[in-house]
Amino acid sequence: MKMKTGISWATMIIVLLGGLLLFGCSKKEIQTDGLVTKPGEGQLADEEAEKAKKRARIREQELTEQQLREKALAEEEARRKALTAAAGSFENEDVYFEFDQFVISESAKAVLNKKAQWLREHATAKALIEGHCDERGSTEYNLALGQKRADAALQYLVALGISPSRLSTISYGKERPADPGQNETAWAKNRRAHFVLK
């Protein structure tokens, strides 16, 4: 949702800037056209010189506006990229747990602190927290454990001041591993709380 809003803002700014530019240019051309109606012989050279000056001025103005537009576009692009990157890290960075545990570790706190900051900066964003487990143990116990993990992450964010109305949870137990491997490296990646923007 947040990303879409950002993109539509960028589009609106581009359209507005473009509109202003077009409006400005056409106004000047109309004025120029008005000056060249019924030109006399003697006036011609002067008018030509005046026209050349104006063209130069217009060209100068166009160049400036082009530069402005490019600058604005670059800024918007940077802002959009930053937002995408921020959303990316918000969704890509998981909170990890020890085997058969749902305690929020120090490193998990560091990740969650960043998520809380991100949520403060994007006040309309809502997140779904998925609790996941590694493949060891029973289907049903892991569903229960995954729910505990998701809710432990939720409660930590709420304690940091994030409104619980912006957060929801679901447990996938061991049903959706991030890494299908059957070793400790894979298992460590799978014991996670994963964030998805709603």
């Binding site: 609790g131 049903e140 229960a144 729910q147 505990k148 998701a150 949870t169």
Partner: peptide, 10 residues
């Protein structure tokens, strides 16, 4: 049936 409580506990 196991149901989870508001705090996530089954």
């Amino acid at each position: 049936l196991a149901l989870s409580q508001p705090g996530g506990n089954s």
